[in-house]
């Protein structure tokens, strides 16, 4: 949040506005507005990608039936989303079917070794080259769609013959142009925060669809 943004969003913040109640009122109002934004954004994602989500869920379920492992990757907050994806598939709440999934963001020794010795662009591609097999699943997240290490991960995954699922934001960035992503979900927002929130819903819904598909006849 830069100062000009703050003034635009919170008019009570200008110098001399020293009424704390007015300030709390202003930020409360902005919070309500952000809640409205994410609700609207999820609806846009549903309208744009509903059938594609259902298709992706079936494709993932089929891959798991054939013995696939899932590898998830991303940077920063999206790296924690990769961890959430892997955790959800591997260790769901009771009643859920556990499936083989690993986050490529969790091993700090490996990440720092690759980053230090080779470069950060390769941290996911090199791991996929070692772990990935034909028919496995690669799930990459990037709010900009432009993280080089995520894109290079997809390039390697495609080379190996993996099923690739990409979550991006804004206009999809280079991820939308790379031709390496089988199922691409672009959240139409320019806010990193709102994009991450909608992406969380996307991977949760995908997991629910996979669970439903695996519970049905194979």
């Amino acid at each position: 949040m830069t100062a000009p943004d703050a003034l635009a969003l919170y008019p009570f913040l200008r110098p001399g506005a020293d009424d704390p109640d007015a300030l709390l009122t202003a930020v409360t109002r902005s919070t309500v507005e952000k809640v409205r934004q994410i609700v609207t954004l999820r609806e846009q994602v549903r309208q744009r990608y509903g059938p594609e989500l259902d298709a992706c869920g079936y494709a993932l379920a089929a891959a798991f039936r054939s013995g696939a492992r899932l590898y998830a990757f991303g940077n920063g907050g999206s790296g924690t989303d990769a961890a959430s994806v892997a955790q959800l598939f591997l260790a769901p709440d009771p009643g859920g079917r556990a499936l083989p999934a690993t986050s490529l963001t969790a091993d700090v020794a490996l990440l720092s070794a690759l980053g230090n010795d080779v470069g950060f662009d390769v941290v996911f591609a090199r791991q996929l080259a070692v772990f990935g097999r034909r028919g496995d699943i690669a799930v990459g997240l990037s709010t900009s769609g432009g993280s080089t290490n995520v894109l290079d991960g997809f390039t390697e995954a495609r080379r190996l013959g993996m099923l690739t699922v990409g979550l991006a934001g804004s206009g999809g960035g280079r991820m939308a142009e790379a031709g390496t992503v089988d199922h691409l979900f672009v959240v139409p927002s320019s806010s990193v925060h709102r994009i991450q929130e909608a992406q969380t819903t996307v991977y949760h819904v995908l997991w629910e669809l996979v669970q439903q598909a695996l519970a049905g006849p194979g």
Binding site: R46, G50, L53, G57
Partner: peptide, 11 residues
């Protein structure tokens, strides 16, 4: 569609 139900639950 299953995805529609999933989104509806979230609203």
């Amino acid at each position: 569609a299953p995805s529609d139900l999933a989104f509806a639950r979230r609203l």
